[in-house]
């Protein structure tokens, strides 16, 4: 991963220069540099990946309005009955192409549609990929093309002082389904965190804002693992995740987030002792 990361980080310097808030350049300008074969080999070795077999569905906006805040949703349709093992998201042409890997635990749930949503930065015209690993260890991929540019170098924080004051504030919200007996429930975790990617140059000080981003997030339901997420700075400022989990007894969610500085942030779906 390191080699690919370095060369890509270098090319992102150029990519950032070519980036803009309004999309004008032709996508073919970057199609020539196909990094997927390298990413695939580094992440999955020589394992077979089945493409577009309907086991995993990716939703992206038809038109990207803010490249620093692009909503992505991955759905695993109810027809997929078994447990899921892992989910990996890539944005090929981002400085670090990996967005996140989720390794699912026993509380990830089965018996209904499972989903995961987040918001990402998109630095350039790029394919976005979701690779699902099912219980039997087989890999299933879907991809979409995104015509967005400038999300990595763009400074997303509109009110950095307010964000800094609130850093670490976390909201964990459960969406109780209409039918409480439904086996798969949905929830949301959001945390105030700059998720700085180290690519924003302040010409006022001639310094890059140092990288600091959410590296790990562990979600448990009643003490059982829903998933552990390994993230990168491709996730937008104030990281925001929606996901599903398997219904349990109490359905209390606990969330632990660790950033690259080693700072830990904790949140719960309801106050302690209630």
């Amino acid at each position: 991963m390191l080699t690919a990361f370095k060369s890509l980080a270098r090319s992102c310097g150029l990519a950032a220069l070519a980036a803009s808030m309004v999309v004008l350049a032709s996508p073919s300008a970057h199609a020539e540099e196909d990094v997927w074969p390298i990413l695939k080999e580094q992440t999955f070795g020589d394992r077979t990946i089945i493409e577009e077999d309907g086991l995993v569905v990716l939703e992206t906006p038809s038109k990207v309005e803010d490249a620093a805040l692009v909503p992505l949703t991955v759905r695993i349709p109810p027809s997929v009955r078994g447990k899921i093992k892992s989910l990996t998201l890539f944005i090929d042409n981002n400085p670090d192409p990996k967005v996140a890997t989720l390794n699912f635990g026993p509380a990830a749930g089965t018996g209904g549609e499972r989903s995961f949503s987040t918001r990402v930065r998109v630095d350039n015209f790029s394919h976005v990929r979701a690779i699902l690993e099912t219980e039997d260890g087989s890999l299933h991929m879907t991809k979409k093309f995104l015509a967005a540019a400038g999300g990595c170098a763009a400074m997303q924080a509109k009110d950095p002082d307010a964000d800094t004051a609130d850093m670490g504030k976390m909201i964990v919200r459960k969406f109780t389904p209409a039918l409480q007996s439904s086996p798969v429930w949905a929830a949301q975790v959001m945390v105030k965190h700059p998720n700085h990617n180290g690519m924003q140059l302040n010409i006022n000080t001639a310094e890059f804002i140092p990288a600091q981003y959410v590296k790990e997030m562990t979600v448990t339901r009643d003490g059982e693992l829903v998933f552990k997420l390994d993230g990168t700075f491709s996730i937008s400022t104030n990281p925001n995740f929606r996901f599903t989990f398997g219904r349990g007894e109490e359905n209390n969610l606990d969330v632990v987030i660790t950033d690259t500085d080693g700072t830990e942030f904790k949140g719960q779906s309801q106050p302690k002792g209630s």
């Binding site: 803009s20 808030m21 309004v22 170098a153 763009a154 400074m155 950095p160």
Partner: peptide
């Protein structure tokens, strides 16, 4: 007083975008 910081951090992307537009 916040103009220098906010414009400073956006300078590169503003220049790139406006050059293109």
């Amino acid at each position: 007083y916040k103009l220098a910081r906010s414009l400073g951090t956006r300078a590169n992307s503003y220049i790139t975008a406006n050059k293109q537009m």
